[in-house]
Nucleic acid binder design. Sequence first.
DNA 1: ATTTATTAATGCGTATTTTGCATTAATGGA
DNA 2: TCCATTAATGCAAAATACGCATTAATAAAT
Lengths: 288, 288
Amino acid sequence: MDLQRIKYFLALAEQLHYWKTAEKVNITQSALSRQIQSLESELGLQLFERNKRNVKLTPAGKFLKEKWEVELNELEYIHQFAKQLHLGERGTITIAHPDSISASIMPDILAKITQAFPKLQIKLVQVLYENQLDFLKNYKIDLAITRDITSEQGIHAKKIYSDHLALVVPLAHAFKKFEDLSTKRLKAQKFILPTKDEGSSYSEIIQALFKSYDFVPDVFLHSEFGSTIIALVRKGLGIAILPDSYMHHQSPGLRFIPLPFKTDILINWRADDHNPVLANILKLVFEN
Amino acid sequence: MDLQRIKYFLALAEQLHYWKTAEKVNITQSALSRQIQSLESELGLQLFERNKRNVKLTPAGKFLKEKWEVELNELEYIHQFAKQLHLGERGTITIAHPDSISASIMPDILAKITQAFPKLQIKLVQVLYENQLDFLKNYKIDLAITRDITSEQGIHAKKIYSDHLALVVPLAHAFKKFEDLSTKRLKAQKFILPTKDEGSSYSEIIQALFKSYDFVPDVFLHSEFGSTIIALVRKGLGIAILPDSYMHHQSPGLRFIPLPFKTDILINWRADDHNPVLANILKLVFEN
DNA sequence: ATTTATTAATGCGTATTTTGCATTAATGGA
DNA sequence: TCCATTAATGCAAAATACGCATTAATAAAT
């Protein structure tokens, strides 16, 4: 059963006149007549009571007119929705991102997305560094924003930003600016650092930093969560090294001393993910 | 857009394999491939992500699979319903009938109908004698059961039953059986009779009855409603002449004395009413 | 690395369906 | 009784769909 036929039927059910209807729907009266006939035989019922002079809906025809109008509208809407899915204007995407950027570039990215595609549904999740790629591969997330350079098979990655590392100390601390730092004075400090993850490019940078001062830090605590680290530093339990993105968080009582080391932020996605939503988001993120 | 195409799509969306699906739906793989392609171009979106090796639903395809399954079921149901309307197995019909038969032949008729067509909706209404034909012509009712013989243009009528007239008296009344009646004794009675409607065949019969006893009755009250008349008779306000169908009503305190006069019950409908429900009901009513 | 098997797409001729034109048949109104 | 209107229909042309055979891509096997 062709939906076009139903549309012809609905037009005729309005007009109740073959010639006028045929003209309205841009076919000949003969074609319309036959379309209605096929529709009737297909359904095994009579839609119109008609003689050579008058056209009138049967009870079944009246019923179908009402129902089909609703159904066709419904279908119309469904098809529009599907089209939006196809164009990546609708749909859902799950993004994992590190805590550090939740107050700096994440808001920028999200603002861009919601402005360009207001109907998109975005799910934000926090995932442990070590799980990120697994989650991506297993379709638990669609996009992972990381500080780790990974060259996994089937995962594409691209740098979208980089920020400086900073030494984080309580306001009362003796370190006020970069020049205050020296190997000797740093050696005396207790450090709170991210979990040391072998092969993580982020922790490699931090190691490189200590190497430049030529000592091994006294690390009394590891934590993966920047917000935890910040809380501990504020309480005076030690000092930390964090990306200066954290400056954008509301963190009174702390001083960020920028260090000449940079850390990259990368965006990762499945190479074979053809979800149009993803394509749209990547385009947005990369376009400037 | 042909619904068949959507069915092909749904089959493929299940199997995700052209050859197997094509076999299942009894067309060739080539035809199926082209059907899906036309569907895609018609909608302006991609339904499957496919290479020469694998078939996979796109997000839009997945969405449409779910929605179309629902819609097609809905349509299926609608078409079945319409078919039942066509066959007169479903639908609504409005029947007017006189009070007198509401406890005798109406229950019989209704039982027959509901047994044969359990899904029919029947509306019963009481309409004044004088309005019945108007209501029929103006599509306010579809069937009128009357005691009046009418030969209106465009109205068909057929006798379905006839019952005797009966003299209705309180149990304590002197009249016990037909032989107790005489012109002299009847003359002394007060009568409660139906509204005298000129040209009504029913009231003509009652007039004929009195003519056979050769006197004009003392009618102190007219009422069109049998149940009202019965209540008045029971209170001793007079005696009445009613169709003996009323005997089937629960009416303690009354005696029905059958009279040798019969009154017909006719069923009336519009000659040009092609509602299949009507046809079915007429067939049922006439078949024995 | 090469071959083989699998599988979706496609060119092409045929079959089916749909369409428009012209005509027919029925019917209401003058 | 005739005329105007209008839905149905015969027929040929156009459009569409189909099946067969083949192609092209690719995953698995060797």
